[in-house]
Simulated scan of single mutants.
Amino acid sequence: MHSPDTPKEFIPVRIAVLTVSDSRSLAEDRSGDTLVARIEMAGHILADRKILPDERAEIAAQLSVWCDNPGVDVIISTGGTGLTGRDVSVEAHRDVYEKEIDAFGTIFTIVSMKKIGTSAVQSRACAGVARGTYLFALPGSPGACKDGWDEILEPQLDYRHRPCNFVEMFHRLEEHKRRK
């Protein structure tokens, strides 16, 4: 067991990025580009990247495919978290979650409040866990992706972050499936 003062080695995480948009192509995906650049700059691995329209069943199906892929540890989606009738990323994520990480949306709102004030109330950013995979849904703007990554995800996906982080819990996410 590590003491609190024992230095830890960085562990790269395999991350899939999903952009949810009815209008963007890969060439126009500034939010996805923002996430990919930050993922790679932090030393993590881009496991896959896709763009899907705002269709709940398609989004949930892709999230499930990635959750079942042993080459994907984390999924970050961008877009579809707003209040319009076409914004269904949150519902699609919740279709897949086994457990929701409630505090993620709260922390994201706190971070957003510092940047955009009360407009932060319009975001439904959320996170959860399914089949040993972390899932995060961020709003579709590059600024929101920067804030979500820089302020929450980068430190929490760094094994060296103290006092605790998401990476050190990977091996325990499915402990309920072990035989007793």
Rank of each mutant, 00 (worst) to 15 (best):
Ala47Trp: 09
Ile59Gly: 00
Asn165Trp: 03
Val74Thr: 10
Gly117Thr: 11
Gly82Lys: 08
Val88Leu: 08
Arg56Gln: 12
Ala137Asn: 15
Phe108Ile: 09
Ile107Tyr: 13
Pro163Met: 10
Asp95Glu: 12
Ile11Tyr: 12
Gln156Val: 04
Gly80Glu: 15
Pro4Val: 05
Cys67Val: 02
Arg86Glu: 15
Ala137His: 07
Gly80Cys: 10
Arg162Ala: 07
His44Trp: 04
Ser3Asn: 13
Leu26Tyr: 12
Val129Ser: 04
Gln62Phe: 04
Val13Ala: 04
Gly82Glu: 13
Val72Phe: 05
Thr109Ser: 14
Ala125Ile: 01
Glu58Arg: 15
Ile152Ala: 06
Pro142Ser: 10
Arg86Phe: 10
Phe104Asn: 03
Arg94Ile: 00
Asp29Arg: 00
Thr34Gly: 04
Thr19Ala: 09
Asp22Cys: 02
His93Phe: 14
Val20Glu: 15
Pro7Thr: 07
Arg162Gly: 03
Gly79Leu: 04
Ala60Gln: 12
Tyr134His: 01
Leu52Asp: 02
His2Ile: 00
Asn165Arg: 08
Asp29Tyr: 06
Gly80Arg: 05
Lys114Asp: 15
Pro7Val: 08
Arg56Leu: 07
Cys67Lys: 00
Lys50Gln: 15
Gly148Ala: 07
Ala103Met: 13
Gly143Ala: 10
Gly148Ser: 04
Lys177Tyr: 12
Leu173Phe: 12
Tyr134Met: 00
Thr106Ala: 08
Arg49Phe: 04
Glu154Arg: 00
Arg178Asp: 15
Ala130Cys: 10
Ser77Asp: 11
Ser3Gly: 13
Gly85Leu: 11
Arg38Leu: 05
Ser77Val: 03
Glu58Met: 13
Tyr97Asp: 05
Ser31Val: 01
Val20Gly: 04
Leu46His: 11
Ile152Thr: 00
Gly117Met: 14
Glu100Val: 02
Ile15Glu: 01
Ser77Thr: 01
Thr6Met: 12
Met113Asn: 10
Pro142Tyr: 12
Glu151Val: 00
Ile152Lys: 02
Arg38Asp: 14
Glu98Ser: 01
Ile152Leu: 09
Asp102Met: 01
Val90Met: 10
Ala47Pro: 01
Val111Thr: 13
Val72Trp: 00
Phe104Arg: 05
Ala16Met: 03
Val129Met: 08
Asp54Arg: 02
Val65Lys: 14
Gly71Pro: 01
Gly32Glu: 13
Arg131Glu: 13
Gly82Ala: 05
Ala120Gly: 14
Leu153Met: 12
Asn69Leu: 10
Arg124Glu: 15
Arg86Trp: 05
Met41Trp: 09
His2Gln: 14
Asp68Leu: 07
Ala16Ile: 04
Asp73Phe: 03
Ser21Ile: 04
Glu154Phe: 03
Asp5Tyr: 08
Phe10Glu: 15
Leu63Arg: 03
Lys115Asn: 12
Arg86Gly: 11
Pro12Gly: 09
Val129Cys: 08
Val74Asp: 09
Ala16Gly: 01
Glu175Pro: 00
Leu63Asn: 02
